[in-house]
Amino acid sequence: MSDQDAPERAHTDFSHSLSYGDYLQLDTLKAAHRPITGAHDEHLFIAVHHVSEVWLELIVRELRAAMTLLHGGITDTPLKMLTRVVRAQEQLTNAWEVLKTMTPADYLQFRHAFGQASGFQSASYRTVEFLLGNRRAVLLRPHEHRPDLHDPLEADLHAPSLYDLALRLLAARGLPVPREVLERDLTQPPVLNEAVLDAWLTVYRAPDTYWDLYELAEKLLDVEDNFRRWRFNHLTTVERTIGFKAGSGGTSGAGYLRAALNTVLFPELWEVRTRL
């Protein structure tokens, strides 16, 4: 090993500068990890959910940034941001694989400790759903006790979704998107519209002419594809752990999650494959 590669050359005095732990506030991060019971697997359960919340916050940040640019008619940088969303979604999905190492007996050792707390109440996850267009006003209720969480979610409920902005971009490029779609009730999830489907068919039949819109459509499908995979892994993890018992937050548990698999965020982008 040459002298310049020796570990002794590394900076070691952090009395007047930020260290790795200082910069990342690792003491604060680790202090938030507080199991309630002595069960071995409660540590795993909390760690997986903490990590998932961090990834969700990154996804929210990237989605909002991409949406701001799409609102201004810019498509190139949002594609990079949506690619980052897709990669973060992959990490979220992989987190279930770690949690699946916990058996039903392991889970029951600490399940009683967190009462009615549930991932159903995750404000970050709900924000992702709202930004992607899966919306129902009733989903705001778990956050009514926290205006700092409830008010931004309510604003998202009434604002254009990622897909709404994509459709407005189609219209701005001269593709015939009906007024009733552009001015629809934004609090409701999208439903398949034949005129919108025709507009996307135009894009898909002439990708060289509409390359950025074509790329945007495919990136949206990547996002929804990974969204579905996350939900499916969530479902199988729940079925492996608690079977068909009710969920801790009051939903039917696996039944609720299985029904959610039928959600379609960007209906025309899936149907366009059949019609081409």
Score class of each variant (00 low, 15 high):
2 S>P: 11
8 E>M: 12
10 A>G: 10
10 A>N: 13
16 H>G: 05
18 L>K: 04
24 L>V: 12
29 L>N: 05
29 L>E: 13
33 H>C: 05
34 R>W: 02
38 G>C: 03
40 H>C: 03
40 H>F: 07
45 F>V: 07
48 V>R: 01
50 H>M: 13
52 S>G: 07
59 I>Q: 01
60 V>C: 15
64 R>H: 13
65 A>M: 13
65 A>W: 11
66 A>P: 11
68 T>Q: 14
69 L>K: 08
69 L>A: 13
73 G>M: 04
74 I>C: 00
75 T>S: 11
80 K>A: 02
85 V>G: 02
85 V>S: 05
90 E>K: 14
93 T>N: 07
97 E>P: 00
98 V>D: 03
102 M>W: 04
104 P>C: 14
105 A>R: 03
107 Y>I: 10
109 Q>G: 11
112 H>Q: 14
116 Q>K: 10
116 Q>W: 05
117 A>P: 03
119 G>K: 09
119 G>V: 12
120 F>V: 13
122 S>C: 06
123 A>T: 12
124 S>M: 14
124 S>W: 15
128 V>G: 06
129 E>M: 08
131 L>I: 02
135 R>T: 00
137 A>Y: 04
147 P>V: 01
151 D>C: 02
156 D>N: 02
162 L>I: 01
163 Y>W: 00
165 L>W: 02
167 L>V: 01
170 L>C: 09
171 A>V: 04
172 A>T: 13
173 R>Y: 12
176 P>E: 08
176 P>Q: 10
179 R>I: 01
181 V>L: 13
187 T>Q: 14
190 P>D: 01
190 P>Q: 07
191 V>G: 00
191 V>N: 02
194 E>T: 06
198 D>C: 06
198 D>Q: 15
199 A>S: 15
202 T>Q: 02
204 Y>F: 15
214 Y>R: 00
222 D>Q: 12
223 V>E: 06
223 V>D: 06
224 E>W: 05
229 R>H: 11
233 N>C: 06
234 H>S: 10
234 H>M: 11
235 L>E: 00
240 R>W: 05
242 I>T: 11
243 G>M: 03
246 A>R: 09
249 G>W: 09
250 G>A: 03
253 G>S: 03
255 G>N: 09
255 G>H: 09
257 L>K: 00
259 A>C: 02
261 L>K: 12
261 L>R: 14
264 V>K: 12
266 F>R: 11
269 L>G: 08
273 R>G: 09
